[in-house]
Amino acid sequence: MTTNLSRRRLLVAGAAAPTFLATGLANEINKRVPRVDTHLHCFAGANDPRFRYHDRAPYRPDTPATPQHLMECMDGAGVDFAVVVHPEPYQDDHRYLEHCLEVGGTRLKGTCLFFSDRPGSVAKLPDLVKRAPIVATRVHAYAPDRLPPFGKSELRDLWKTASDLGLAIQLHFEPRYARGFEPLIKEFSQTRVVIDHLGRPFQGVPEEHEVIVRWSRFHNTVIKLSSIPLQTKYPHRDIAPVIKRLVSEFGAERVIYGGGFSADATPESYRAAFDRAESFIAHLPETDRMAILGGNAAKLFGFE
């Protein structure tokens, strides 16, 4: 990374005291590794007539979580880039996501949501990718009445469409549904698969989550360190050993971070979320921690 430093900085560094070489120059280099939040939702709120929630919305947040608020929190917390994950209340209407990405400029990219079993939904995907900086399409499998069509051509068609467009597949699911995705992870081995929220380790029995741990053998999978549960809440289990094992199995180069932004977030709380995440990977070298908290995502999603 020192090759990217200017000749003047190299000369100054070379003439400086050893203490500066050990600290100051290292800090200069470290600043070049961006911080990236790969998982946040934005909402216009219940009272914005421009962006109504969909008739099929499973929930309807009243309080806005706007891109303007996001940018203020990012600036105050030292977060360079972020991925706005299109939330379910809007279903496959992406107008608010496009609005957010326009406000964020080069600092924001998006994950979209289309439904493989809904006529005409996936057909909208190519046009959205032409209009907006979309990096992934998300698939949900956590409610028995809203599962993707496992084993059918419709789900494969969504996966192939996203793959042909150069997008990642972003999976949000309960562990009991993991096996339904595995054939497509294998078939589309060149398509990146992002596993949200550590694969939801506490929303099933350990044997079910073990399926996800074994996905580390597929080199196109990436685990997301997000939605980190508190031990003070049900089921009151310590997530630290789970995180340590997932990082060990997938390797630090295939772990990305997301989380901390919400309607009531502040720059301080946003920064604290990153700090809390880093506390779970404190056993890793600094270079690995920086990669997980931003470097990996910057490469994966093309942030510059």
Rank of each mutant, 00 (worst) to 15 (best):
P119W: 05
A141K: 09
V33I: 15
K224P: 10
H86C: 02
V247Y: 00
L225M: 12
S226Q: 07
S216K: 05
I169C: 00
I239D: 03
D196S: 09
H54Y: 08
V247D: 01
D55V: 15
A265K: 04
P144W: 09
Y53S: 02
R32K: 13
V213K: 13
R192V: 08
D196R: 02
F303C: 03
H197W: 06
I212G: 01
V36C: 04
S116H: 05
V205T: 11
R179F: 12
E88W: 06
I212D: 07
Y177S: 07
R107M: 07
Y59Q: 08
R237H: 10
R237A: 11
E278H: 06
F188K: 01
F218Q: 11
E268K: 15
L230K: 14
I134E: 01
D145S: 07
A77Q: 00
E304I: 04
L167P: 00
P148M: 07
R245V: 06
A265E: 07
D80I: 10
E182K: 08
L184E: 04
T232D: 14
L25Q: 10
V83S: 01
V36D: 02
R214V: 10
G260W: 02
Y142N: 15
G24R: 09
H39W: 05
P18K: 10
T111G: 09
V247K: 00
A297M: 02
F114K: 05
M1F: 10
A26D: 10
